[in-house]
């Protein structure tokens, strides 16, 4: 089946030493996507498969000053159940909880979600709204850090290089009360169905209700994962009102049309994006009467 070698490793340095070689090495962790590709034979020939599912250093969830760092091999179940993640991210635990089924969450990892960069990867909109940073390390052990928005370069495409390993994802903690967040996933059938659209929102307002920060990210809406910066700008510095919220939602819809054009699904998708955004923003923001 094209796999020449299977290597089980237990440390980051061992993984990195497998990545520098000449024969193509592929990383496997939870296996929730890779085992299917493997059996379909779509991974190619003469593959070295490096199994990182037992590298403990890659599974930790830690607080480092103001930042929360999640190892690439942390499983969705751990992220969904972590009180540290719930308090600091406001939304990422919801996103992790919405992934697949309990069985998938036991094995599926956040790193796998990021690296496969599927349209429907549930945690990506949440990580974009959290301004997350990605840390990579290459076979020479040099570290590269970049915003997740730059790392995700296109549909199912990332900026990862052949000899690089995704080490962790980190984001500044939003714990402490000023920030609010919401994560809403729209699906046809609960559980296993691939996520149809997911709405990740973060906001902060001052005492007068002026919007100081708003971050909008919608999974499966744009062809390349990203934020709705133009729409965000329309709200920042203003008092939240029904009118402002509607304009913001309309701005998001135009960004979708601009990027993806009008498709067969637009007649359904566009009004839904607008309605869900209006509803979510209205609940999230303290509104002017």
């Amino acid at each position: 089946m094209g796999i020449e070698k299977y290597i089980q490793v237990t440390s980051i340095s061992e993984v990195l030493s497998c990545l520098g070689g000449t024969s193509p090495a592929r990383i496997i962790c939870g296996g929730t996507d890779m085992v299917i590709s493997l059996r379909e034979g779509s991974l190619g020939e003469h593959i070295t498969l490096v199994d990182i599912s037992r590298v403990k250093e890659l599974q930790q969830i830690t607080q480092d000053g103001q930042d929360i760092e999640i190892g690439a091999a942390a499983v969705m179940a751990d992220i969904a159940e972590s009180s540290c993640i719930a308090e600091s991210s406001l939304i990422l635990h919801h996103a992790a909880r919405s992934v697949g089924s309990p069985q998938i969450r036991s094995r599926g990892t956040i790193g796998g979600n990021i690296v496969t960069s599927a349209q429907c990867a549930d945690t990506i909109p949440a990580l974009l709204a959290l301004d997350a940073q990605i840390t990579l390390m290459n076979s020479e052990q040099s570290v590269r850090t970049l915003p997740i928005s730059q790392f995700l370069t296109g549909p199912k495409q990332t900026d990862i290089r052949n000899d690089e390993l995704l080490i962790s994802v980190r984001f500044p903690s939003l714990a402490g009360g000023v920030y609010r967040g919401s994560y809403y996933k729209l699906i046809r059938r609960a559980a296993v169905a691939k996520s149809r659209m997911s709405f990740a929102l973060i906001s902060a307002q001052d005492r007068q209700g002026i919007v100081e920060d708003i971050r909008i990210s919608i999974g499966s809406a744009l062809s390349t994962h990203g934020r709705f910066k133009e729409a965000e700008k329309m709200l920042i510095g203003k008092k939240a009102s029904l009118d402002a919220v509607e304009k913001t939602a309309e701005c998001c819809v135009s960004q979708v049309v601009e990027q993806t054009g009008i498709r067969w699904s637009s007649a359904y998708k566009l009004p839904v994006i607008k309605d869900v955004l209006c509803r979510e923003l209205e609940t999230l923001l303290e509104m002017e009467d």
């Binding site: 299977y6 089980q8 929730t32 998938i104 036991s106 094995r107």
Partner: peptide
């Protein structure tokens, strides 16, 4: 579905090597 280290997993998606 089986229990692996106390958690449910789909045994069709776990490589035997990962269950070592």
């Amino acid at each position: 579905t089986v229990l692996m280290n106390g958690r449910t997993v789909n045994a069709c998606m776990v490589l035997a090597g990962s269950a070592d």
